[in-house]
């Protein structure tokens, strides 16, 4: 029997999205980061183009999450309460390719920090690092809208990735992104149709398609990962098959989702069969990240420096733009 590599070609292509803006593009970043552009399944170099490799961002906080594990603090104890300094450390020491600034502390029930404070933090982070940045909000619509409007304004021209809008709350933030030239995350709860619908709504208000990143919603390992995994594969397959409203690069949150579940918090002495706590946490984040990478993730917001390191190495190793063996 003669063997032939069974190639599958596709009509569609994942949208290419640029994050950040250099001085000649109206921003102050030293470089931009591009994601998307693929014409075949994730890492399937033998049957398509993959012009850009997936990237890893790390996250800093206006207010450290209540469940942030102690072993993670050890990597940034000195700077954890100073988002700008922490951002710098994540880029310089831990190899973060982008920085996400999480503004959960502005949530009325989680600190209720002011809009101005939030905008200041974003400005400081932009000054302290030269990589493109992501600004991550929360689910309290009214407050989040105010915060994001202001953030968009003070970072005008930087082409930040504004994270996120959902179907019940997209107009205000999308308009601010349009006005101040930012890119937008469209989040939907693990559902192909909802994801598509939101992208249609956005493009119908003339939001440029090349400025949309999708967040299919991350369930971490053991907490809904299988749903996220399969929805991502379906979204990517449909996008490649030609459905333009599903052909956007995808963002996931392995860090935030992983380091709040019991498996990354319970001590080994209470659960001896679970093994060492910190190693377990790192493995948990790596497994979540790697499985979702092969399902189609292109932008990962991660927490543990050692997980970041391993995942970045593997992305490089998986990026084999040559045919055959």
């Amino acid at each position: 029997m003669t063997f032939e590599i069974p190639e599958e070609t596709h009509a569609g292509k994942v949208m290419e999205v640029t994050l950040g803006a250099t001085p000649d593009q109206g921003g102050t970043r030293s470089h931009t980061v591009k994601i998307g552009g693929s014409t075949s399944s994730p890492f399937h170099f033998f049957e398509g183009e993959h012009p850009h490799s997936p990237v890893v961002a790390m996250e800093v906080f206006d207010q450290v999450p209540a469940k942030y594990p102690d072993f993670l603090r050890n990597y940034c104890r000195d700077v954890i309460d100073q988002p700008a300094a922490m951002a710098k450390k994540c880029v310089a020491e831990y190899g973060a390719e982008l920085i996400s600034v999480r503004l959960e502390g502005t949530h009325p029930e989680k600190g209720n920090r002011s809009v101005e404070e939030a905008a200041e933090i974003v400005k400081h982070v932009l000054e302290s690092v030269s990589v493109p940045i992501i600004v991550t909000g929360h689910s309290h619509f009214e407050k989040n809208n105010e915060v994001m409007k202001k953030v968009c304004e003070v970072s005008a021209g930087e082409n930040c990735l504004i994270n996120y809008v959902e179907t019940d709350n997209y107009k205000t933030i999308a308009a601010a992104c349009l006005a101040y030239k930012h890119t937008l995350v469209a989040q939907s709860p693990i559902d192909v149709n909802l994801a598509k619908q939101l992208n249609i709504l956005l493009t119908e208000m003339n939001f440029p398609a090349e400025k949309i990143v999708m967040d299919p919603l991350t369930g971490t390992l053991g907490y809904g990962l299988e749903y996220t995994y399969s929805i991502m594969e379906r979204i990517r397959n449909d996008g490649l098959a030609g459905d333009k409203m599903l052909a956007f690069p995808m963002l996931i949150n392995p860090g935030y989702e992983t380091f709040r579940v019991k498996e990354t918090r319970a001590a080994e002495k209470d659960y001896p069969e679970w093994g060492d706590l910190e190693a377990r946490g790192i493995y948990w984040e790596i497994s979540t990240s790697m499985s979702l990478l092969v399902a189609g993730a292109e932008l990962l917001i991660m927490y543990h420096p050692q997980a970041v390191d391993a995942v970045k190495k593997k992305i490089k190793e998986m990026f084999v733009p040559k045919k055959g063996n």
Binding site: Y229, E263, P272, E273, W274, G275, D276, L277, A279, R280, I282, Y283, I286, S287, M290, S291, L293, V294, A295, A310, V311, K313, K314, M318
Partner: peptide, 26 residues
């Protein structure tokens, strides 16, 4: 951990790990 995760998702029916590590196994 990264390799084993990919191999589990993408089609290996048997994987051999070089050592016993409870946290990794979990």
């Amino acid at each position: 951990a990264a390799n084993a995760s990919i191999f589990l998702c993408k089609y290996d029916s048997v994987i051999v790990l070089p050592r016993y590590d409870k946290a990794l196994l979990y």
